[in-house]
Design a protein around this nucleic acid. Structure first.
Lengths: 264, 264
DNA sequence: AATGACATTTCATTATATGAAATGAAATGC
DNA sequence: GCATTTCATTTCATATAATGAAATGTCATT
């Protein structure tokens, strides 16, 4: 019974480095904690010895990923993570290409404006410009959105890769609110409708009382590279938005797309 | 970006983990690159073997710190860094305590509003609310500011720890523009003036043509926990700001401080 | 002074990361 | 269509480098 098929069932050798794995778990742990954690606490949470964790924290600290409270000696996540996050955000062409247009969109509609991009199986907010009323939930840059339960997500399902759309539609669809679409059929129908009309909404699907109106941004190859949206209370952005609002959002998206075409 | 020097004379053993050190350097490298990098390229840049780097990248990828381009197999920084950065930002009490007040401040002044906090020897932007005119440079959350060359920085020098103020004033003072204060004496005099009047400006000191007007936010123990500011072109925020602008900014800062007192 | 709660260091032990070279896979050139 | 180049990936023997238990240092609090 020679079962020497390496990748048959389980994974005996994950082919990585366990030292690094432990250290990264420590970073994750520290980010999750809202208060600085003691060395013993971290060691216990990760089932490692204090000495090991200590050495890793020293190295992480040298790199700025972790910082130590001067008074208590406790450890917490380092602000370098914020700097790295911002550096990463800047890499998306759409962020710089869209700036002025997004300000105009906000001023014309009065609503908050957001920009999203999908990377692999993650949909992430890249930009938020606050409108007249304060929108805080699920809109900060760095936030992850659900493909099936957000207007941005529907844009990506409608105009992004078909593989992703199939995978998402067939996967489990979590209900964020009672209005979230959780049936595969209903989702595919909605996505088809979005593709036809060129814009998407998600009234009450992320947070009850909040609606979003999104449109796609394409690059010079007509490949989807981002989505923009206005976000606001349902009283300002109705489930069926004003034609004027739709015109503004779709028009902005088209102008940004045109701007991206020039970069060849 | 300078992480460490080998400490020529003092300590022969740096007391860390070299494996982790290498992996963190890889993350730094990938964040700095604007394009995805090949395995060989990373290995060469870090003077390590491809096998080693490969294993580290696999582990980093499992944790989301790194991602691999599907087509080319090249590696780039992962969006998890953005998510961690945002999670970290949320931890600052002042961010949630100040939200509504900042919106009001923006609407009253029409200018962009920023919030900063200092951690150890870093001054970092935590929040930006765009005004009527677009302000982009040195104002994004996650950006690091110079203590001696920003209105936020002067607030921290005036109302923060005296050790830091002494260290910064005696350290090298880089000139960002011709107007940046680079003399220790001039800086200390300016800081003293800021302490007396309760607000700070930095006209043309960060970027020529841009001015910032900042004020301190204290917690219930009267300890400085943040600074808020309006940022705009010098034509909107003159080197000597309007009394009305000063009243708005200082008033907002005081109301946020009052809000923080209730959290005991 | 004595205690306790913590971060830090030491040190022997071996588990584990390592690099050279082989392999596989996919473009590119002739 | 075959040879060549350029990658990422895997293998494997070896020694480096990470590890945990326990000792030490440090700073409060009693």
């Amino acid at each position: 019974m020679s079962t020497d098929l390496p990748k048959a069932a389980g994974k005996p050798a994950p082919a990585g480095t366990s030292t690094l794995d432990l250290a990264l778990h420590a970073v994750d742990y520290l980010v999750q904690q809202s208060r600085p954690a003691s060395l013993a606490q971290i060691a216990e949470a990760l089932s490692a010895s204090k000495a090991t964790i200590y050495r890793h924290l020293v190295t992480l600290q040298r790199h700025g990923f972790v910082r130590q409270e001067a008074e208590t000696g406790r450890y917490e996540a380092g602000i370098k993570l914020m700097m790295l996050g911002e550096a990463l955000r800047q890499r998306f062409d759409i962020v710089s290409a869209a700036r002025e247009e997004l300000m105009t969109l906000r001023d014309h509609t009065g609503q908050a404006v957001t920009v999203c991009a999908a990377i692999d199986d993650e949909l992430i907010v890249l930009e938020l410009i606050q409108g007249r009323t304060l929108i805080e939930f699920s809109t900060r840059p760095g936030t992850r959105l659900a493909f099936h339960a957000s207007a941005h997500g529907k844009i990506w399902l409608a105009f992004g890769s078909q593989e992703r759309t199939a995978a998402i539609a067939n996967g489990p669809l979590e209900a964020w609110t009672p209005a979230t679409i959780i049936s595969t059929q209903a989702l595919l129908a909605e996505v088809e409708a979005v593709r036809k009309r060129g814009w998407a909404t998600a009234p009450n699907e992320v947070i009850t009382g909040v609606n979003t109106l999104a449109a796609p941004v394409f690059d010079h190859r007509k490949i989807l590279v981002g989505s923009i949206a206005i976000v606001g209370a349902t009283q300002f952005i109705p489930p069926v938005p004003d034609p004027e609002q739709i015109r503004e959002v779709v028009g902005s998206a088209e102008r940004i797309s045109r701007g991206l075409s020039w970069q060849g």
